[in-house]
Every structure is written in structure tokens, then in C-alpha cells.
Amino acid sequence: MIDHLTPVLVGTLGAATPLVLAGLGELITERSGVMNLGVEGMMLIGAIAGFATGVGTDGNMTLGLLAGAGAGVLAASLFAVLALSLAANQAACGLALTIFGVGLSAFIGQSYVSHSLPGLQPYDVPGLSSIPFIGPVLFHQDPVVYLAFGLYVLVAWVLARTRLGLLLRAVGESPEAAHAIGYPVLLIRWCATLTGGAFAGLAGAYLSTVYTPLWVQNMTAGRGWISVALVVFATWKPTRLLLGACLFGGVTILQFQAQGLGLDVPVELLASLPYMATILVLVLISRDRSLLLLNLPASLGRPFLPGR
């Protein structure tokens, strides 16, 4: 059994990485009071930008990943102009961004369908990767996995321990109060939204350049939406987000390892597990209204326009 379990656990961290990245980005955005439902669209735009750059540079993965993050920022700025500067309905703007991202990535991606990329080789952390069982699971991963977990530490630290994090949370809790003491609410929200875009774009580029290094239309397959759900599940806390993402990574990887584990069920059932699990965790977390209200950034989804 343990022989079959190791590949599942090894795959779990890789499958969790896009969720960790996109989820952290959305968490930052939502902490500033902005709900961007366009994560799926930003991921797709990042995925095709990263893939196209990777192909165009003969497999330069670093450039590909950077291009993905940059494209995510551009996509998020479309959302920010509408939802922040023009104070439009955030839910609708996010949805528009997703529809736009699906269309744009499919449009550009058409000419990249037959290409593939070399991907990234796993990097063995010296000394640690030879520990039995734990070594291959934790310390034999590609560099982006380490990056994602590093970013988790960074985001958790900034949010909880720094002045910047305090400012971000203050804007999310009460933009009016933050505005009254002279903080640039809209600027902070813009930055948080663009950071979210960079994270989502990077997550998308990881999928298309490293995780499955080829382009398939709609290849994010709902991971953007699952990330949004994970932020709710995590009650806007980075550590819970990380755990949730790993849990979902494990559920996702199950379908590829089912045969080895001796599971004789339709592949479609296994493939739909992450989506059903998303519904389940939403139900479990949302039924306790006070828990949600306690942690929810108080101004989430509410546009801020001084003088209104």
C-alpha cells in the first residue's frame, strides 16, 4: 500500500501548487475588501501567455512563468479599472473577466495546440531528499512548488506581522475609516488586486509550462473557482488555505493513481470529486454563519467611492 501511496503524496504537492498560488492571490485581494471572481480567467490568460512565451523562447521556463504572472497583472488591471476606479459591481466584473479570459486564451491558444514544452525537472533538496518516504514527498519537487510554499510563508508573515498587512486589513475592514485617516484606499485596493492577478497568472503558467507542459483549451478546469472557494473555506487565513489546497491536491491526484490503489470506479466519478468536495467544504464552512462573519473582511465586495 505504501508503495502506491507515495506517488499520490508526491503528486499532491504539485497538484496543490496552482491552488496555493491562485488562492493566496485571491486571499490578498479579498483581505483588501475586493472580491475578484475572475481568478479562472486570469489563470487562463497567464497559462497561455506563459506557454506562448515558453514556446517562443525555445523552452525558457523562467521567462514563461514571469510572462504568466505579468499577463495576470494586466488581466487584473482590466478588472480594477471597472470594479475599483469605476466602482462597478465586483461580482459581475469578475465574471466578465473570466468570460473574457476563456475567450482570449482559446483565441490565442488555437495556434499553440500542437506544441509542447520540456517542463521543469524536480530539484532535490540536498540531504533532505534522501530521507525515506518524506524525502521524495516533500523534497523532490520542481522549483515552483518550493516557490509557492515560500510565498505562503511570506504572505502569512506580511499579513500578520507587518505594517503593510495591517494597512491592507484595515482597508478591507473599513475603507471609510482608512480613508478618513488619510490612507489611499483605492491605491491599496489596486495593488492588492494586481498582486492577486500576478499570483493567479503564475498559477496558470505553472499549469501550462510545468504541470502539464502543453496547451489545452480551458486547461485550468475550474481551478480558479476552486481557489475562490478555498479562500472562503480558509476563512481568509493563509495557513488554512495551504492545508485546504493540499487536501484538494490530493483529491485531484486520486484520479490518476486510482488504478494503482485498486479503485474500480468510473474515471468521471473520480474526476468530479474535486468539484463535489468544493461544494462539501463550502457547505461545512458556511453553515456556521458567525464563524464566517467573524473572519470575513467587513467591506468585501462593496465598492468604495469617497463622498457617496
Binding site: 468570460i99 479570459g101 475567450g103 482570449l104 483565441f107 488555437q110
Partner: peptide
Amino acid sequence: PAAITGLFQG
């Protein structure tokens, strides 16, 4: 590409 429809929709 026919996906241009999605682009116009967005």
C-alpha cells in the same frame, strides 16, 4: 479561430 466569439462576448 471561432473562439473569437468568446473574446467579443467578454
